[in-house]
Design a protein around this nucleic acid. Sequence first.
DNA 1: CAGTGGTCTAGACCACTAT
DNA 2: TAGTGGTCTAGACCACTGT
Lengths: 235, 235
Amino acid sequence: MEYKPLYMHIRDQLVRHLVDGSWAPGMVIPSEMELARQLQVSQGTVRKALDTMTADNLLVRKQGKGTFVAEPEDSRILFQFFRLVPDDGPSAFPQSSVIECEESGASESEATALEIEPGAPLWRIQRLRHLAERCILVETICLPSDRFPDFPDLGQIPNNIYQLFSMRWGITIAQAEERLKAVLAEPADARLLACEPGTPLLRIHRIARDLEGRAVELRISRCLTDDIHYAVNLR
Amino acid sequence: MEYKPLYMHIRDQLVRHLVDGSWAPGMVIPSEMELARQLQVSQGTVRKALDTMTADNLLVRKQGKGTFVAEPEDSRILFQFFRLVPDDGPSAFPQSSVIECEESGASESEATALEIEPGAPLWRIQRLRHLAERCILVETICLPSDRFPDFPDLGQIPNNIYQLFSMRWGITIAQAEERLKAVLAEPADARLLACEPGTPLLRIHRIARDLEGRAVELRISRCLTDDIHYAVNLR
DNA sequence: CAGTGGTCTAGACCACTAT
DNA sequence: TAGTGGTCTAGACCACTGT
């Protein structure tokens, strides 16, 4: 029992380079041959490790050029975590505007979701997002303060917050779980979304995790789905 | 251009066995060595073809036993196409009861979704689904009549309709696209779901495709999400 | 042209299952 | 013990990119 093939050990070693930041987003990593030499295994075993990492969107391989560390601003990665697309037309990445940003203690449910102690300090950011001039959603983002020191020091929170996580704190969002429900717009959200209270909204509850599987972000979005939908491919 | 590696040609040949029914669900297929001999390629190339098919849930490989054709009643396959899970507790497969079953012409939108001519005959089945004694959704299933001859001859439509597709017409559902929106319960649905009109519902628009990528089923579900949610893993 | 990733081969050995 | 899928190796060649 507990048998783990060699290529998974190799993978673990390579992931460690991503975790400790020695391989930064956008960088070329050594070639298969070079890694095989360094790690004293065959090229085929290195390849298998690289293949699993590519499948998990951690690396991007380009024939003839090399293997690169995935960047949060790659459109592939972008839409990996953004599944709302217009009913017609192609998908696009929404603009954001921050409404509120404050620090306070985690509630019971927030603490459970983020796997931290209730009352532990966290940043709570509320922002609106727009797609082609149209306001489509309001979301509340919760971030444990200890993982994000000096959070509010930055004058502005950029549009792609996962890119910020990566550049400022070296945190890579590798995976997320979403839970979807239909709810009615509460007065506060209705005001922000410029719709009637009681409008049906798609509520998305997301827990985002880093390379090591630790919960990093809790995000609850409420979306107007008149002209857009949440797309899922089942294969 | 148009280059296609050998293992993809091998894959195409193997998928043909599934399409024409010579490899039926549950069957053991020949071993890697045997296939390599028959197809005059190396075992490694057969393996790569089999790996892609396993990743697509078409095959199930069991070390020491052999490679099997996936069955629609396998729990893995079952939950591949059923993403609604209770907020607490483990996921379960819902019971169904048919409310209505009639044949008529496809509307414009139905025809577009199913890639058939408007007005082409299709079966329209409406049914309720229950999870642990609780009615959770009402759904309308549209099936092109020409793909499902003698559809209503069967006394009853079973719970797992994809298993029926497989057993009765040899149709394997290999893939589906879902579009989710939040809507308000219309009076007719509210009556069926025993809720108030205006209750928020999760509306799931599904197009299911066979092994060859042809649209086979259009299904529109309206779900109560008080105690359940739609689960998505983003990796 | 050299260097990269991608494919294909042939063979050895490991882990699991059944007999 | 024999047969299966799973891992690992070593080497050849193909396709793509840059110089």
